[in-house]
Design a protein around this nucleic acid. Structure first.
Lengths: 224, 224
DNA sequence: CGCTCTGTTGATACTTCTCAACTAGGGTGG
DNA sequence: CCACCCTAGTTGAGAAGTATCAACAGAGCG
């Protein structure tokens, strides 16, 4: 049951090439809401979510918070070594574990070991794919469409983990977080969930517990 | 100078570490509006814009076009080797040159040469930084704010290339393209330009020719 | 119990989209 | 040369969508 991070396909199960890198890891255990790492101090490190979930926040110029990325087991972050000011990582669930890798040593390892270097490239490419998914998600016009695409992406990433359980998503984030992530007001997120349920696309047994009933209806460019 | 521009610097003029990779390049010359490469056939390649500008488009499920990325000299793309269906790259300016690298050979080179591997990592990290900029841009609430941030990002990337010309941006794209990029209607883009000019942030000598007068006013969270 | 936090729902105001008309520039062919 | 068309851009009016403000429900917890 250990979230052995066989996650996204390309990153997927890289036991051997990552072996060398894993030796560099320092685990960070955080409780819900705790900050994993913060701003500039995070610069000389690379990170990877081992268990739980985390959000990466940025403060925009006008002081509004923006969730730039949601992170699940297997996801790496911290590639842009600058550690932009105002950015921070916060744990979303109890018992979140993040692995921290010293950038300098990772680079040295990559220089010495082509297999490790290849693994790091794969990691970076997976991050790129994730960000591109997020971009096309933000480009969707409707709030309902955004939320539907968000749910699909979330289910894909969660189910890529290990559980074979097909069409059930547990939201690790609040409506407010989803709103920050999708550039929507939390009320609008809530209304979108209601609309999706009314449409028969999903079923909400609890606010954070979504059963996906009709994937096509989630994708559809629906009104109401 | 802003710390952000530093992230672009390493990509801008990377002569020596890229030398080995450059030997693998096939140049593609395209005229304005021509397709550089298309969908699945682009999968086994990595690309880099050498001159001109290009846009990366994706077709969303509902058939709407989305511009996922705007590409300028020095920008790489095609990391996600899957070459997602419906995506295509189109040249935006006359005489656009894109370099194409066979992925397999690039990987082989990276395996053989740590310096080349490091260069590729830098390239991927730069792409990540670019995508993150785009995400925080899309998260902005106002249309005017979005357009302002878009102009700032564009100026930063154009001036990072080679021209020292300070605060003048030539838009390589139509209002419609900007709208697709920012998830706005073209009319709204036009109105935002007018608002920014009214505010004194920019000056439009021609629709595609923007002089940046007041950077703070571009960033401001302005109404109207 | 009262408290807080999260989520829901309603009413209203504001932003943006959509449709439409109009202008300016560039090309083409008479 | 001008008429013509085509595209890109601008501007306006109305419709649609979302944000905002507010009230309220339920869960967890002291």
């Amino acid at each position: 049951m250990s979230p052995r991070s066989a996650s996204l396909a390309p990153v997927a199960a890289p036991p051997s090439p990552l072996a060398g890198i894993e030796a560099l890891a320092t685990p960070l255990r955080r409780r819900r809401g705790e900050i994993v790492c913060d701003g500039e101090r995070s610069a000389p490190f690379l990170y990877r979510v081992e268990a739980g979930a985390a959000r990466r926040c940025a403060l925009s110029a006008d002081g509004r918070r923006r969730i730039v990325d949601l992170l699940f087991p297997g996801d790496f972050f911290g590639f842009d070594g600058e550690g932009r000011a105002g950015s921070s990582i916060e744990a979303l669930t109890e018992g979140t574990i993040v692995l921290r890798y010293p950038r300098r040593e990772v680079e040295a390892l990559a220089d010495a070991d082509p297999q490790a270097a290849r693994a790091i490239r794969e990691i970076a490419f997976a991050a790129i794919a994730r960000l591109e998914t997020q971009i096309s998600l933000l480009g969707r016009v409707n709030a309902v469409e955004k939320v539907g695409a968000f749910l699909l992406a979330l289910e894909e990433r969660q189910s890529a983990g290990e559980r074979a359980g097909p069409r059930r998503v547990t939201l690790p984030v609040s409506r407010c977080d989803i709103g920050d992530f999708l550039a929507l007001a939390p009320e609008t997120v809530s209304r979108s969930f209601a609309a999706l349920e009314r449409r028969g696309a999903i079923s909400l047994s609890a606010p954070r517990d979504v059963a996906i009933l009709d994937r096509a209806a989630l994708r559809a460019r629906g009104q109401r």
